[in-house]
Amino acid sequence: MNHCPRLLLVVVLMSLSIASALAAAAPAQPADSAESENRPQAQPEPELYRLWYRNYDSPPILSLLTLALSKTPEYGPFIIERSVEMGQGRALLELRGRSELIHIANVATSPDRERNLYSIPIPIDGGLLGYRVCVINADHAHRFRGVTSIDQMTDRGLRIGQGSHWPDTEILRANGAHVITHARFEQLFDMLLNERFDCFARGVSEVIFDLEITRHDQLIIEPELLLAYPMPSYFFVGPEDHATAQRIQLGMERAIEDGSFGQFIEQFFGYALKSLNLRERTLIELTNPFLSEETAAQGKRTLERLTQRLRSPMKDTP
């Protein structure tokens, strides 16, 4: 019985100690919570997208990719970087191999590319890549006068320059053209200046930008001819990069729906279409036997609509 008061005293002292500790801790909790609420929230790291260097250097392509990614804020912030310089063939191999050197490339489509890569099947320029004009030496313009077919170009000894890995190369050959190739895009301009070939066929949506970048005063755009064949140009990503493909496609679809894609076309290609005087040119229509069935149908419809627009009377309003 004599131990009970001591035991009671111990219990009381322990209780007081616990209560004191709790009381001391209690005021600190709201301060921590307030500090946590006021502390800036950590922002997610921007997603890095490496765009093939030739696309990055092209104002329309870089702007369209930026537009598409900006239309999908739920995917988070992003940064677009210029890839290391590499030819088109290697760029596509790097994409196929899931390389970190490159994540996105815009090129003309083909069945092989659609099989081995992940395509976003929306033509980035509305189908304009299939319309081609010739970049030529200014002194050779007379050699193209009166030409109305590929056969006539061949008969006159007019050779067309193209990239080694471009689908256009085989398309032009399949239509009877004499084609000279090189793996490096920039080298093709030097070859044209050195008369290794006579016509560097470039899309109407890209040719003006090409000449602004290369700055060769001796080269001009041939004023009379217009080659045309179905040639959709898509964004491509690696075969397993579903997230990037879905983001780009969703962004482009939203841009089409809200009208900003149409504004993009007018901003970057409206001047080119007017300045190239396409309606007055001799149209040489070619076939493209190297498209998948689905893409061929889409490309044919797009080409027909564009050709109809070219042949329709010019309107004063855009």
Rank of each mutant, 00 (worst) to 15 (best):
G262I: 00
S292N: 07
T307D: 10
Q41E: 07
R215C: 07
I284V: 13
G127W: 00
F200W: 08
L283S: 08
A245T: 05
P40D: 05
Y56A: 14
Q152D: 07
A174N: 15
E94Y: 07
G157V: 11
R54I: 09
K274W: 03
L129C: 03
I120V: 13
A183C: 01
G157P: 06
S20Y: 03
A91Q: 08
R305C: 04
G87R: 04
A68F: 06
K274M: 00
D217E: 15
T287F: 00
M191P: 08
Y53I: 01
N277D: 15
L211P: 06
Y229S: 11
E266M: 02
L13H: 01
D112A: 11
Y56P: 03
D316F: 01
F200Q: 01
S15P: 00
G89W: 01
N38Q: 13
F235C: 10
R96W: 07
G203I: 11
L188Q: 12
S233Q: 04
G176C: 06
P27R: 00
S33T: 00
D112L: 13
Q267K: 11
R39F: 09
L16R: 02
Q162C: 05
Y118Q: 08
T295A: 03
R196P: 09
I171T: 14
I208S: 14
R82E: 15
A255Y: 10
Y229G: 12
Y118W: 10
D151I: 10
L225K: 12
Q43K: 10
E206C: 10
A25W: 04
A243D: 10
T307M: 08
V10F: 00
F268L: 00
E195G: 03
E170N: 15
V207Y: 05
